Amino acid sequence: MRKLSDELLIESYFKATEMNLNRDFIELIENEIKRRSLGHIISV
Rank of each mutant, 00 (worst) to 15 (best):
I33C: 03
K15F: 13
R2C: 09
L9G: 01
I10F: 05
E32Y: 02
L9R: 01
N20P: 05
K34W: 13
F14A: 05
T17E: 06
L9H: 00
E18L: 11
S5M: 03
E7F: 11
S5D: 05
F25I: 11
R23T: 07
K34I: 11
S12T: 15
R2W: 13
S12N: 07
R23A: 10
T17H: 14
R35F: 07
A16G: 04
E11G: 06
L28Q: 09
E7N: 08
E32P: 00
N31H: 10
S5W: 03
S37T: 07
L21P: 03
I33W: 02
I42F: 03
M19T: 05
I29R: 00
R36K: 00
S37G: 14
K15W: 15
L9N: 00
S43I: 13
S12L: 15
I10Y: 03
S12A: 15
S43G: 14
T17L: 13
N22S: 13
I41K: 09
E18N: 09
R36P: 00
E32L: 02
E32K: 00
I26V: 08
S37R: 14
E18T: 07
I41G: 03
L8S: 11
I10P: 00
L28H: 05
N20T: 05
E18W: 09
E32T: 01
L4H: 03
F25G: 03
L28C: 05
R2F: 11
I33T: 01
F25W: 14
Y13Q: 01
I33S: 00
S5Q: 03
L38Y: 03
I26Q: 03
E32W: 02
K34D: 04
I10N: 01
M1C: 12
L9D: 01
I29D: 00
E32F: 03
L9P: 00
E27H: 10
L38P: 01
H40N: 08
L21K: 07
R2D: 11
I41V: 11
D24E: 13
M1N: 03
K15C: 13
R2L: 14
R2P: 04
S12V: 15
R23P: 10
N31L: 14
N22H: 11
L21R: 07
V44P: 11
S37Q: 12
I41H: 10
S37D: 09
Y13D: 00
N20V: 06
E30Y: 14
N20F: 08
K15A: 10
L8Y: 08
D6N: 12
S5E: 04
I10M: 07
E11C: 15
H40C: 08
M1G: 02
L21Y: 11
E18Y: 09
N20D: 08
I42V: 08
N22L: 07
G39W: 15
L9Q: 01
H40V: 06
M1A: 04
K3C: 10
E18F: 09
L28I: 11
A16I: 05
R36Q: 00
I42D: 03
E32H: 02
H40S: 07
L9A: 01
T17D: 04
F25C: 12
D24M: 10
E32A: 02
F14T: 06
N20W: 07
L8A: 15
K15V: 09
M19S: 07
E7L: 10
V44G: 13
G39L: 13
I41W: 11
I29V: 05
M19L: 13
L8K: 14
E11D: 09
I26H: 02
M19F: 07
E18S: 13
I41Y: 11
D6M: 05
E7T: 09
M19P: 02
L9E: 00
R23C: 05
N22M: 08
F25Q: 07
E11A: 15
E27S: 11
E27P: 02
R36F: 02
R35G: 03
F25A: 06
I42P: 04
K15M: 12
F14I: 11
S12Y: 15
S37F: 13
E30L: 15
I42N: 04
L28W: 04
L8H: 10
I26F: 04
Y13H: 02
G39H: 12
K15E: 06
A16E: 04
S37A: 11
L21I: 08
R23D: 06
G39N: 10
L8F: 08
I29H: 03
H40L: 07
I42C: 05
I26A: 03
A16V: 05
G39C: 15
I41D: 03
K15N: 09
E32G: 01
V44F: 13
I41N: 06
F25R: 04
L4C: 07
E11V: 11
T17A: 10
A16P: 01
M19D: 07
L28Y: 04
L21D: 06
S43F: 08
L28S: 06
L21V: 09
K34Y: 14
